[in-house]
């Protein structure tokens, strides 16, 4: 498994070097309307592991020209086959509104959703909207990429904010964050893979796991 990961990383690096010469353009992400205004109150540096919304638009992420959302209308599977509310295909249907009817709700505890891009791709960014109708923080957001649909081999973790290792994938160093209409933009360093899996473990308001939309930006191989 280690060998496979090393090969994957070397390939990614080489590809990254190749791409470094490619033209970089700002990634354009269409944002839904905000649903809560005024909260939270930004408190500079109050929580070492929690990133506060700045209230300012997010700086653009530069990606190679030709990068597109490869997740749109792609099949989604999950650890919870019977969502409490909504359908799994909401996650890649392109609608990001925070209102009811736009999100899928998975059961309590650690749950995952997995998107099959249906082809290998070089991934440069992932954007995830869990739920932005109220101020809350989702626990243990972990995002992985792999060519193995079972996520047993060649797994690359591109985001992990489980800083106290409650989900058991190892302690992560990425910050937790308050959900807003901007979603969470994860800068991925040209990682190759066909499947993207996202974990979470409830949130600060309740035990449920929600997804409105996941966008996976990359270039098909």
């Amino acid at each position: 498994m280690k060998k496979l990961m090393t090969v994957g990383l070397v390939a990614s690096t080489l590809l990254g070097v190749g791409l470094s010469n490619a033209e970089l353009v700002p990634l354009e992400i269409e944002l839904p309307d905000p649903l809560f205004i005024g909260t939270p109150i930004p408190l500079d540096g109050d929580l070492p592991h929690l990133e506060q919304p700045t209230g300012e638009p997010r700086p653009p992420l530069m990606v190679p020209a030709g990068t597109e959302n490869l997740a749109l209308e792609k099949p989604v599977t999950s650890s919870d086959d019977w969502p409490i509310i909504g359908e799994l295909d909401y996650i890649t249907d392109g609608y990001k509104d925070g209102d009811e009817g736009f999100y899928v709700e998975l059961g309590p505890g650690v749950q995952w959703v997995q998107i099959d891009l249906e082809q290998e791709a070089v991934i440069h960014a992932i954007v995830v909207w869990h739920y932005h109708a109220a101020e809350r923080v989702y626990h243990d957001v972990i995002v992985q990429i792999s060519n193995d649909p079972e996520f047993e081999e060649g797994v690359i973790t591109v985001f992990n904010n489980d800083h106290d290792n409650t989900s058991g994938f190892g302690a992560g160093t990425d910050p937790a964050y308050v959900e807003t209409n901007e979603g969470r933009l994860i800068d991925v360093d040209a990682v190759e893979g066909r499947y993207v899996r996202l974990y979470s473990r409830g949130n600060t308001a309740n035990d449920m796991n929600h997804y409105i939309e996941v966008e996976v930006y990359g270039i098909p191989r």
């Binding site: 408190l43 540096g45 070492p48 929690l50 101020e135 800083h163």
Partner: peptide
């Protein structure tokens, strides 16, 4: 936020929601 500098030398932090909107 006020005590962070003092506590970071000896402690590590995490957070939890007491109820919606109260961390």
């Amino acid at each position: 936020a006020e005590a962070r500098a003092e506590l970071e030398a000896t402690h590590r932090s995490t957070f939890a929601g007491l109820r919606p909107g109260v961390l």
